[in-house]
Design a binder for these strands. Structure first.
Lengths: 364, 364
DNA sequence: TTGTAAGCGTTATCAT
DNA sequence: ATGATAACGCTTACAA
């Protein structure tokens, strides 16, 4: 009855929509009146705490269902001073790497009763600052991000630190040691790639990197360490770097290598897209993969689709999201109040058609 | 001073973390006390409404900054009975199609002061039902979804209808005529593909479709209509359908076509992935693209990456999100209270290397 | 132009 | 086991 009445009101409101409409939702009070008891008793069955007799509980349940009652979490949050909302900040949700992390975060978050609010921070500092304010105003319970180190991020971290809102970096900035960080083990990944090529018999291995990229730096480090650990001497000339992770950069760098008197017999590109550029360069020179040159990509994104399909280093994408959200929830629920952690997750070599033993004519 | 004190408290709390910590945020009251005036005056400058003298405004601003005040939108929402939160529901955020829509929704939403909460509804009805409850409890202002028609979605639509929370389907279910729908014009897109092939000189054109798919049905319709409008007779044998949009399905269907006495000279696959399967089948038969057979994909997802690169029908992905969020905001802010709309957005043919005139020996 | 005070729908602390 | 009642932090008549 009540319901019908309110519905009629709403319909009526369409006629005088110049007036602000007031959505009157069913409240605890309404349910209490209907069930013939106090709001606190109803509150107890809704919240599932305190003593309620089975009989009253049933009565309340019935009234709730009949009236279509949905507890107002806003009022609850105001009273309890905490929300069930966490945020995930990315540079670009369009990037499959981030959208996969988002998926695994969302999954665990929602199964623990948390809502995930998604923020595309883009690259402008201003946007991130606005987001920071918005998140603060919304009193979010915690935050995961995959953002690069910037002043705006520093600002965010600082404020959240003060407000005691936990932050986890999921393959984002590694700079702020006050926050938990979970990231792929790039040193190990590049090491594995190098080792795999060494075991195939290659000894003159080049890498296609990117200047000013922490990731590229770590991967280069893994390459160097493995080479040296296995007793090979390091040749700095085999480390070539471009300005970005794009296809054209891969193409150009590969061209440079091929024009040398002694080109490498194997190449590790620090990203699948660069590897695609490298494939183009190699084919243009009339060489074939893997017969003349072995090629390994990184990130295992489009490696399945190239021709030939690319041996690549797969990132533990799903793992990153899962571990990050787990840490965050532990922080929020104060099951963990220890020092900030740094967690490295293993990368995995996926062997496909772009790698083989070096050509026999290789006399190196 | 106050700030320092609270920080010390927090640090101290780490020692007795068995006690529940109480985050005490700065409130309007605190600011008012500091600035030496009433809460309502402060409220007026925070909210930017009513009369405030420039002098007091400045005083308040100063106090706010000094104390690090962030308005509590939860309290505000409780009072005003509305939130600045909208939700976007997808079957899978990992799918680039949806993540691109999500990106454009997020963009406009945030620039209008709304938060986007992202929900991966997956395929289980139970998950969607849980999400429905959660969204209701959170009193979201509106909802966009890209979900297929299911009972659980019907349930959601029905409840939201009752509660007067606007819904927009962004390339999701088209069934519920009570909600606004914005979607790609599949009839036109398939029509354009067909027309393009006809103009190249093809007359024996096949399509690779999928059973029980509305999308496939509409695309088939576009194909048929264009053929008939141009005076070609329809050959039902040239419409082959599989059980899903997968690569293997494309491969199998293409094989079937190639084994016929009179194979088609051109094929439209209703999805790029199926087209990849078709390429494999065609190459296996020793035929080449586009010399022997022209091939068109759909959705323009991986079309750039295939070999040969694929002529494909690009979906107006960004547009879908933008239009959907615009409609939703208009509904929320009651700038639009008209009948539910259905908006079709144009698809665009992107010509690449997989299409050419039919071979000369084609005597059809 | 500013202040007072009554809610918004919960939870939490008392009584009973 | 249940009920009254006071917050939570804000907005908003209404009064001054």
């Amino acid at each position: 009855m009540n319901k019908d009445k309110s519905r009629n009101n709403a319909t009526y409101n369409n006629y005088n929509s110049h007036l602000k409409r007031r959505k009157s939702n069913v409240t605890i009070k309404d349910v209490a009146r209907r069930a013939g008891m106090s709001t606190s008793t109803v509150g107890r069955v809704v919240g599932g705490y305190g003593y309620v007799s089975d009989k009253t509980r049933e009565k309340v349940r019935k009234a709730m269902k009949e009236m279509g009652y949905y507890p107002n979490v806003i009022a609850r949050s105001l009273k309890t001073r905490r929300t069930q909302t966490i945020a995930y900040l990315v540079p670009s949700i369009t990037n499959p790497f981030f959208s996969q992390i988002a998926a695994s975060i969302e999954d665990l978050a929602s199964s623990h009763g948390y809502n995930l609010i998604l923020c595309n921070a883009g690259i402008k500092a201003d946007k991130l600052r606005k987001i920071t304010t918005m998140l603060l105003e919304n009193r979010i319970a915690g935050l995961i991000h995959s953002l690069p180190s910037t002043d705006a991020l520093y600002n965010l971290v600082e404020i959240f630190q003060k407000t005691h809102i936990p932050i986890v970096s999921a393959s984002g900035s590694r700079k702020f040691t006050e926050v938990d960080r979970v990231m792929p083990d790039d040193v190990q990944g590049a090491g594995d790639a190098t080792q795999f090529l060494l075991e195939l018999g290659h000894s003159y291995i080049a890498v296609l990197g990117v200047k000013n990229s922490t990731t590229s730096k770590l991967r280069t480090q893994g390459y160097k360490e493995t080479l040296q650990r296995r007793g090979y001497k390091l040749n700095e000339e085999l480390i070539v770097e471009g300005s970005d992770f794009g296809e054209d950069t891969g193409y150009t760098l590969m061209k440079v290598l091929l024009e040398r008197k002694k080109p490498p017999t194997a190449v590790v590109a620090f990203n699948d897209v660069m590897a695609v550029g490298a494939i183009r360069a190699i084919e243009e020179e009339g060489l074939s993969i893997p017969e003349d040159i072995s090629l390994i990509g990184f990130d295992d994104t489009i490696a399945r689709l190239t021709k030939p399909s690319l041996t690549s280093i797969a990132l533990p994408i799903g793992e990153i999201g899962k571990v990050a959200i787990r840490i965050l929830l532990d922080r929020i629920e104060e099951k963990d109040s220890g020092e900030p952690k740094k967690i490295l997750l293993g990368e995995k070599l996926v062997v496909r058609d772009s790698t083989a033993r070096p050509p026999a004519r290789s006399d190196l």
